[in-house]
Design a binder for these strands. Structure first.
Lengths: 334, 334
DNA sequence: GGCATGGTCTGCAACGATGTATGCCAGGAA
DNA sequence: TTCCTGGCATACATCGTTGCAGACCATGCC
């Protein structure tokens, strides 16, 4: 079938191992020999068999990326950037969609998926730190997002609380006093919903504006839920002059519902989101939001994970990286 | 390190091959033996080593998906669906982003990427059928999208021309006469841009409306280009009463630019797109578009590719599958 | 001349699974 | 009894690569 190292060795008149040495940049090879081998490789069109290499070396040069749903714009953009960053260092990314199902998340930690990858970028949504620690093998794992804050794990995240506070402060400064929050998850305090809600509360407090639980609309982070949540508030007659969607698709769903109902944005109700997905700039009105430094997150998580994979330090404290953020003020909440 | 078949064999008191036979559902094994092996597997927590299996069997149970950019909403949704469909049949999908660079597309056909996968789902954007045929190995390949229509290859696509014609007819029926087209690629006639443009022209012809080249704005399929293209038309003073974005992000970019400039949509100008991405429903105004049956495309491409991989028929004529479409009439072009 | 040294290359044994060929045993046919 | 067949299990070679240990040779030093 395919050309093997043996064929190359025969063609170059050297041993199989010498071919291997050339391919692996072994130091002590005479230039002439090296050249002969390389010529033979080109002539025969030899390509190393990655599977065999993986079996022997125990490395696959693939990274695993676990997220809930690749079709969510934020994850799609993140995955795209992660793949590019990994590619520059000679790695590929294999994506696993968990759909926020616990079993899938658990299997990603120890099943076949783990075997296929040298390290994991993990966005856990439903399982907790202990469950992860219990199943964690010795392969490196970097947490993405902020659902789990645990000193045992490496983590790359964004300034959720600060950014949410800054955004809320911006709304308050514009005179908004009743800011509805769409997409909260009241029972949690650590995940992104919790942290962002915290930021919101801190900003209110700082401004001396009372917190009103009636303004908090919990839901899953999907566009249609954002619309439904706002519809719910309107139907219940809850008064509000701004909507903070805990991510952009929620905010855009909310924005849509408001406009349908004839609510003027931003005159009557301001709308703001979080993530700064590509779409935010081109919404009508364009969406005020927080840019969480996605490129920085991508770069640094790849760098951190690869350092763990290629470096020697196996354990020690987890490193926590926080990317910077930028407030993007646009038409929906000037 | 890890538990191997040998360990299981020892624990169960059978030979290594018997363990392999149990795992591969070999027919003639005494129930008692089978049970002992399975117990040992559970007790030791054995997991088959996929790399070794791949080396021996020559199969990886991975499919390659080549597309230009995973962060484009259409591709993100498609990739997500393809991965789910593949997963149901026990396959994983490895994504490669070509960025529409010829070299990357070519390498996907024969380099390491090909080696890692049992079959390819390929969306070629810049290389042509002959280049593909020249490098095609014996592993199955299914074309996605419609940039290449060639009897040599399997292809799963959508009814680009018909759907574009139907959409154009809808605009004409609503009384629009000067329909600008954003995202054309005038030099091509086969890719999606070409086919959709054809559909547009046929519908015009059928309605007896003259074709005006001034209304055709060529550009790459990105949101900002959609906006820029409309800006260009307005600045040049080209009169139009509708915009047909050859995909949704173009249409949404165009929509944004129109609204910014104070053009009323749909009163003065109607806007329509193509793809029916999630976002289209929630745009303001919501976007009239064509739903190309993405789920059907995903299902059928996976089915076709896996039939090729697992079936015996290697060659023969390429199969061409066309998914159905639906016109989604919404506010932007009622 | 003997011996350590260092550069260059080689052979062998793995990595962990599967395919092929074969052995062995029991039971039925000859 | 002998032969054959079918059910069940095994041994061995093999996939293509890399790690380890060592062979060989020339050089330089005592």
């Amino acid at each position: 079938m395919a050309v093997t190292m043996n064929d190359v060795a025969r063609a170059a008149g050297v041993s199989l191992k010498t071919v291997s040495n050339v391919l692996n940049d072994y130091e002590f090879i005479r230039p002439a020999t090296k050249q002969r081998v390389q010529d033979a490789i080109v002539e025969l069109g030899y390509e190393a068999n990655l599977t065999a290499r993986s079996l022997r070396s125990g490395k696959t040069r693939m990274l695993g990326l676990v997220l809930s749903d690749l079709s969510a714009p934020y994850y799609a953009e993140l995955a795209s950037r992660l793949m590019k960053a990994a590619s520059l260092r000679g790695y590929r990314v294999l994506v696993e969609q968990s759909d926020a199902v616990a079993e899938v998340e658990l299997n990603a930690l120890q099943g076949p998926f783990r075997q296929l990858t040298d390290g994991l970028l993990f966005t856990p949504l439903v399982i907790d730190a202990d469950a992860i620690a219990a199943r964690l093998g010795k392969k490196p794992l970097v947490m993405l997002g902020e659902h789990i804050l645990d000193p045992r794990f490496d983590l790359v995240t964004m300034k959720n609380e600060e950014a949410a506070a800054a955004l809320t402060a911006h709304l308050l400064a514009a005179g908004r006093r009743r800011i509805a929050v769409v997409g909260a998850r009241p029972e949690e305090s650590t995940g992104s919903p919790g942290l962002r809600l915290n930021g919101y509360r801190k900003a209110l407090e700082q401004a001396g504006v009372p917190f009103d639980p009636a303004l908090i609309a919990p839901c899953e982070w999907r566009r249609d839920n954002g619309a439904a949540a706002v519809a719910g508030l309107l139907d219940k007659g809850v008064a509000f002059d701004a909507v903070f969607g805990l991510n952009d698709v929620l905010a855009l769903g909310a924005l849509h519902e408001l406009l349908i109902r004839g609510v003027r944005v931003p005159d009557e109700v301001a709308v703001a989101g979080f993530d700064d997905i590509d779409e935010a700039r081109f919404a009508s009105p364009s969406l005020t939001t927080v840019s969480p430094g996605m490129e920085e997150i991508a770069q640094r998580s790849i760098a951190l994970l690869l350092d763990r994979i290629e470096g020697q330090e196996t354990a020690g404290q987890g490193v926590h990286v926080e990317a910077g953020f930028q407030l993007k003020v646009r038409e929906s909440a000037p």
